[in-house]
């Protein structure tokens, strides 16, 4: 009951400050940008004057799966950035302004407070990602070739877990600092460390959540769900829960100080 009250308030807030409008639009732009520009690249080159005489540049046309992966790739880069930005002040901003003190003077459970915030942001990011991927899929189908829609939906579900992890990391960092800008910076640092570590020690860290979008790509072209995909998804889920728990404990300890 109390959980729902906070959740609904968060949804209303994000509706009134228009996040529910601009976040999906920005995500969709990110997802459709790459497939479209790649398809029209030769024409764009011609229009701006073409290649110099004699230069032979052969730009291979990607296939449908490769084009689809461009959408996933853009979202796991720019989409993550936007997610960090929209979540950076959700707790730290309330602490900084002081409204946190009014809310927490009511018998609000920290678990409810943090998890309702998580769900409201995650829901927005999930909906935006799903809309964006489907928009990307639509343009890929028009320009490159069709991809099975059920496979795509499965891919979206796995991708959502990666975003759940991102939101949880930002929420956890939110409880450490009271400056939203610093929260964004530290969160991005953690996400970059996760990605860099994964690319350096990729042969060991095959379960790293940072590899989810790569595994989704493999799944889209082969059609088989690999164990690695399941495990990295499981890791994303476990890490999300751990981060949220950390956030709750940090807030509780802050009260005990």
């Amino acid at each position: 009951m109390q959980w729902f009250v906070i959740f609904k308030k968060e949804l209303l807030e994000n509706w009134r400050n228009l996040k529910w409008i601009w976040v999906p639009i920005v995500f969709i732009i990110f997802a459709v940008m790459d497939p479209i520009t790649t398809y029209y690249l030769p024409k764009i080159m011609d229009a701006v004057g073409g290649m110099p005489e004699g230069a032979v540049v052969d730009i291979p046309m990607p296939n449908a799966n490769e084009a689809m992966m461009m959408s996933f790739g853009e979202l796991s880069l720019l989409g993550v950035l936007i997610t960090v930005v929209i979540a950076m002040g959700t707790i730290s901003g309330e602490m900084k302004s002081g409204v946190y003190e009014l809310i927490l003077s009511k018998p609000v459970k920290y678990t409810h407070y943090v998890s309702a915030k998580f769900m409201s942001i995650a829901l927005m990011v999930w909906v935006s990602t799903a809309l964006a991927i489907i928009a990307g899929w639509y343009y890929v189908a028009l320009l490159f070739g069709t991809i099975d829609f059920t496979k795509l939906l499965t891919g979206i579900l796995f991708f959502s877990l990666y975003f759940a992890l991102i939101v949880s990391i930002v929420l956890m960092v939110n409880t450490w600092f009271q400056t939203p800008g610093l929260v964004a910076f530290i969160s991005l640092l953690l996400i970059i460390i996760l990605n860099v570590a994964t690319s350096i020690y990729g042969h060991i860290l095959t379960w790293s959540p940072a590899l989810i979008s790569d595994y989704i790509g493999a799944y889209l072209s082969t059609g088989t769900l690999t164990d690695e995909l399941w495990y990295s998804a499981l890791m994303a889920l476990v890490f999300s829960i751990v981060c949220i728990q950390f956030a709750i404990i940090t807030l509780k300890n802050r009260a005990l100080q």
Binding site: E13, G98, V99, S105
Partner: peptide
């Protein structure tokens, strides 16, 4: 907190809410 009402020195609200919305929200939290 169930039976204490607290007004901080500098109360800050969710400024995007209306006065009544905030009171209803606070009541539901309690």
């Amino acid at each position: 907190r169930n039976y204490v009402g607290y007004l901080p020195q500098f109360p800050v609200f969710h400024n995007w809410m209306t006065g009544k919305e905030f009171l209803v929200y606070a009541g539901q939290l309690a």
